[in-house]
Simulated assay, not measured.
Amino acid sequence: MPTHDGSWPQGTPCWVDCQVDDPARAREFYGELFGWEIEDSPPGAGEYLMAMRAGRAAAGIGPKPEGMPMPSVWTTYFAADSADDIAKKIVAAGGSLITEPFDVLDMGRMFVGADPTGAVFGVWETKAHSGAGVYNEHGAYCWNELNTGDYKQAQEFYANVFGWHYTETGDGHNFVYSTFSLTHDGREVGGVNDATKMPGDNSSYWLAWFQVDNTDIALATARDLGATVMTGPDDSPYGRMGVVQGPQGEIFGIIDTMTRVDEPPTGS
């Protein structure tokens, strides 16, 4: 079981949580789907719930911010050594702040921002809570992917804010995709997809992917629990996958990375 202790390196996807109208309903859905043990947060943390796998934090579930109309969503958070410093970089790079940095009890300091193409994400500065303690296993997040309507602008923005380095893996024409890492020759920690090359909606958003042991069973279970299967199951060089819209409208991906077809592309 891949686990992590302590702060994540700056720029790494370090946490995911969903904001919904009814956290109690989401608790039942995700607990059944992913086998999460879901715990209540300490007093003062509102209705925020902590999803656990084998005693380690895997994800969060919380209510939508009061007085802030928004759809139900999964949010990807990036680690920051200083949330305030990253907030300044976001604005300087052409992004925007949806919330100013604020403290979350003694757990950490955070804010929510948006890149210039409209994709929303969170930033987390570790204090008592360092983010995900488990990843890349059944019921834990395994990949975070930006789908963007302006590929080059998005790459430039995140490089300026977090110092990301990109490796192009698509064919450069019909499939434009890159992975990003924290250093030039570092391990890939997420991906960027040119949404204009895909049919349908070309809006910009971050998509969280959760690993499962069996995609077909997970999709069927999600459907039985009231979710909508938007795509899949589909085979790929990265795994057997599908995209799901939860019962309250939040969208996420699931993937069995052990069931693969062909080899991943090596780039154009």
Rank of each mutant, 00 (worst) to 15 (best):
R109L: 08
T221H: 15
Y48D: 15
D40M: 08
G253W: 00
R25H: 11
Y141V: 04
F180W: 10
V212P: 01
M1E: 06
S96H: 06
W8D: 10
R260D: 05
E156M: 01
Y158P: 03
Y205S: 07
F78H: 11
A93Y: 00
N160K: 14
D185S: 11
M107W: 09
D213C: 01
A132D: 14
I217R: 06
Q19D: 14
M258G: 04
D21S: 04
A93S: 12
V192M: 04
F111S: 01
Q10V: 10
E168T: 09
F34L: 14
H129T: 05
G94P: 03
A51R: 00
A222E: 07
S181E: 04
M198N: 02
P9S: 13
G232S: 06
G190A: 08
E250W: 14
G242L: 09
D234L: 10
A222L: 01
D103S: 15
A92Q: 15
G108L: 13
A45V: 02
D185Q: 08
I90E: 05
G170K: 12
G94Y: 00
M230A: 11
A195M: 08
S181A: 15
F34E: 08
T117K: 00
Q211G: 03
T266L: 11
V104G: 00
T266G: 04
P237C: 05
S7D: 13
V104F: 04
G94V: 07
S130E: 12
F180C: 15
A93H: 01
G139R: 10
E137H: 04
I217P: 01
D256G: 14
E47F: 02
P247W: 11
W15D: 12
A59Q: 07
A54D: 15
P199Y: 08
A140S: 07
V176Q: 09
K64I: 05
G133H: 12
E250S: 08
W124D: 05
P199E: 10
P101F: 08
G122L: 03
P247N: 09
E37K: 11
G191N: 10
V134L: 10
L225I: 01
F175L: 11
A159P: 00
M68N: 06
E66D: 14
